[in-house]
């Protein structure tokens, strides 16, 4: 009990320190790094939402791009075509993907293993084809641009066209989402997700409706992926059918595998490492994807539990040998 409290206190302390660091960073780095970090936050949100179903529930979904793209389009279309404000558009970027995740999940969670992977890819492909061909509504492969109205928060107003304003806006939402996911994972609901990942049959025998819990995880992850898509659109002021392509889910898969699945901090770390590596390498070579691929293969071979898993196992080894 005491140990648990100590761990929680340690987490809160580290979280606050990191958050304070991220709050003051814009005063020391130029605009480009602010936009880079803003994009990084968005991908962290996408990666941790994916980690909920993959890392904690054991479902490898390549369909998250569908929800990411839906979130992106929801914000873009609601602002551009219906003149909605930013806060409502963002709210819908969670609600609409949740509804779709409910529908997709209803069929998908009945399947396991490779069949689940394939059906989620199929749903993403359907979404991408619709996005690509319904050009009058989605702009197709070319996409749609928009100018987000300022975000009003009581007396304050955040101009999302301003890089710093957008940075703090995205940081706040991602930080809240991170805390929300962490709290949920520590709750009894999260324990059920983990029990399904560890031994689905046993969870069923204990009396849990496994499919229902899988569907809940799928819906929550879908909603958060949609929110990530919405924030991405707000950051780029743009959305296209490319967001719906199943390969976008690959970003989350890579970040999670590199950082370490089932840890929340792992996918965040993975996103930071891979995106920074890409950003650094792009100055020297065009084929950055190739290097990312090599890193991924190396991680799978040498540290299958990702960076966080690798560090944890080192610590454990150290403790046992001591």
């Amino acid at each position: 009990m005491f140990l648990q409290k100590g761990k929680s206190f340690g987490f809160i302390l580290i979280f606050i320190l990191i958050l304070l660091g991220l709050i003051i960073i814009p005063f020391f780095v130029d605009l480009f790094y602010q936009t880079f970090l803003t994009e990084l936050f968005v991908w962290i949100l996408f990666a941790i939402s994916f980690d909920l179903i993959f890392g904690y529930t054991g479902l490898l979904s390549f369909g998250q791009a569908l929800f990411f793209g839906l979130g992106g389009y929801t914000v873009t279309i609601l602002i551009r075509k219906f003149g909605l404000n930013t806060e409502l558009s963002l709210l819908f970027s969670i609600i609409i993907p949740i509804l779709f995740a409910w529908f997709v999940g209803y069929f998908s969670v009945k399947l396991t293993g490779i069949h689940f992977v394939i059906i989620t890819i199929i749903f993403a492909i359907i979404g991408n084809i619709i996005g690509d061909t319904w050009t009058s509504f989605t702009g197709g492969a070319d996409g749609l641009t928009f100018s987000p109205p300022p975000y009003r928060l009581g007396l304050f107003q955040i101009d999302l066209m301003d890089i710093k304003g957008n940075y703090y806006f995205v940081l706040t939402i991602v930080a809240i989402s991170f805390l929300f996911l962490r709290r949920m994972i520590q709750s009894p609901l999260g324990k059920v997700f983990i029990s399904i990942r560890e031994n689905e049959e046993r969870a069923r025998l204990i009396g849990y409706n496994v499919q229902r819990y899988k569907l809940i995880a799928f819906i929550i992850a879908g909603g958060l992926s949609g929110l990530a898509g919405g924030l991405y659109s707000l950051t780029l002021k743009y959305a296209s059918a490319g967001y719906l392509h199943w390969s976008v889910s690959g970003h989350a898969v890579v970040y999670t595998i590199v950082g370490g699945m089932g840890t929340l901090i792992g996918p965040a770390l993975g996103a930071g490492i891979v995106m920074s590596l890409e950003h650094y390498l792009i100055n020297f070579l065009q084929t950055t994807d190739l290097v990312v691929g090599i890193v991924l293969v190396a991680m799978v071979l040498m540290a299958p539990k990702g960076l966080v898993g690798f560090i944890q196992s080192r610590f454990k080894k150290g403790e046992t040998s001591a």
Binding site: F32, D142, Y238, S240, I282
Partner: peptide, 26 residues
Amino acid sequence: RKMILEDKVDLIMGSIHSGVHLACFP
């Protein structure tokens, strides 16, 4: 954005991809 904010380019040219141009417009 990297070109404009980090490399500080004065002008940009290239690409045949309409989507690329559209995404760069804002």
